[in-house]
Design a binder for these strands. Structure first.
Lengths: 248, 248
DNA sequence: CGAGCGGTTGAGGCATGTCAAGAGTTGTGG
DNA sequence: CCACAACTCTTGACATGCCTCAACCGCTCG
């Protein structure tokens, strides 16, 4: 554990309000590790021994069944993931792998649960975080069941722009094949959808998204705060992709 | 509040371990109401003023967007619903309506949050419940994204049977159109799927499900504990339908 | 008895997945 | 520094899953 990491962790919603002694205890029992890109950190079904905190890099949470696989979310610094399994001491429901070289803090689940009982502010933070994760995935599921793929893509583009303060252009935070899987479609289908969306106010050039007609895009996406936010439900990510970066 | 209801509420995972004084306080600030069938209890977007506990009847949680609508889960006694919104003091993401005449306890969200801070055991129960709800809907989403509709139906039938101790026959807990929506398909498509499944070890006659060849059904459904359970993730329901009843 | 509703069935169409091939990009090792 | 391998992305052709619309049956309940 590098001492200079601590303040950054401390800034997280989850740890911000807790008692300093408890914070030190929690982190004192933790480990920091560096992982290369493409490493499987967690295999679904494994016991949840650690809460993970991404300090650097990026981690994909994904699910497998039979031969199929789908992206559930991507976690970027500084965020935690798989809180629910740690709290419950239950097997992970999702797998996790690094997308880039990453630095990750591992907090023993047992320590998490102990401190939860002894620090009320921490307990409040944990339950808020978890409720946020829950609401985040509820939104996600609503999108999957109520919108078709074109509408999901349009909503995603519009939401990203809104999160960036209405930016008319920005860079995708992940590669398209991953975005496709997150949105519940194939890469081929996403590719074709992007083409189709050019007639609806948004153009994509490589990794760059350019909103050419916001009103037209909104007419298609029909953004809804109960699906797309904005709403600080997930201070760290429950079931989302990271925000895009504004275009240089 | 009828005094005879209290022990039943007290039995819920959520309230079982808490301090008696705190329990009495919480319920003392609550209301009980009877609602006719088909009444909209909650409209998505409303502020979450109350945690709801279903004592009698049945409640459907559903989501709307544009003109479309889908069932997210059905809650039967004795279970709570929409814990996350109450904890967060955030707008409901789902609507709720009674499927039958129902008796429901309304616990003020503010009281919930106060007692959470003062009763550690209750806090532990709440966070466990919430983590269970989260895991439940993660399973649900995995099913939606990884399986096609026929596989989802087959898995559902198999899971119900397993929950009933391997019963070869049972009665559906909800009408088919609702089941279809829950599974993310149209009633027509479910109807056709049922027909197709007769060649795969399960027959449906009206509301009665009869498993004729468990192995064959399992070969199609490929049940997976990380999607289907069994796992006491949701002591009350996060995102499921109630269990079926064994056939008379 | 008639209206309304859930369920089923058929016909047809659109949305989405699958398979295959090729262009462009990136990363690596010689 | 270049060549190659691996990978993403795109495009086309095709198959199919799923939805939509419409009609009809049977049941329930006024």
């Amino acid at each position: 554990m590098r001492p200079e990491d601590l303040p950054e962790v401390r800034q997280l919603q989850l740890f911000r309000s807790m008692d300093t002694d408890k914070f030190d205890e929690l982190l004192g029992r933790s480990y920091v590790q560096n992982f290369p890109a493409g490493l499987e950190l967690i295999r679904q079904g494994d016991p949840a021994d650690f809460l993970h905190v991404v300090m650097d890099g990026a981690v994909e949470l994904y699910a497998k069944w039979g031969g199929r696989e789908c992206t559930m979310s991507v976690v970027r610094p500084v965020s935690t993931f798989i809180l629910a399994a740690s709290i419950r001491n239950a097997p992970y429901l999702m797998s996790a792998r690094t997308l880039e070289r990453s630095r990750i803090i591992l907090i023993p689940s047992a320590a998490l649960r102990e401190v939860f009982r002894r620090d009320t502010e921490f307990a409040v933070s944990v339950v808020n975080e978890l409720a946020g994760c829950y609401r985040s995935i509820v939104r996600n599921t609503k999108g999957l069941k109520l919108r078709n793929s074109r509408e999901r893509v349009a909503s995603y583009f519009l939401r990203q722009s809104t999160l960036l303060g209405g930016a008319p252009s920005y860079v995708l935070p992940v590669e398209k094949r991953l975005l496709a899987s997150y949105l519940g479609m194939t890469p081929e289908n996403l590719s074709r959808t992007l083409r189709a969306l050019e007639a609806h106010g948004v153009k994509v050039d490589g990794m760059r998204v350019i909103i050419t007609d916001r009103a037209r895009l909104a007419a298609l996406a029909q953004p809804d705060t109960l699906i797309d936010g904005p709403d600080p439900d997930a201070s760290t990510n429950g079931s989302t992709l990271p925000e895009a970066r504004a275009r240089a």
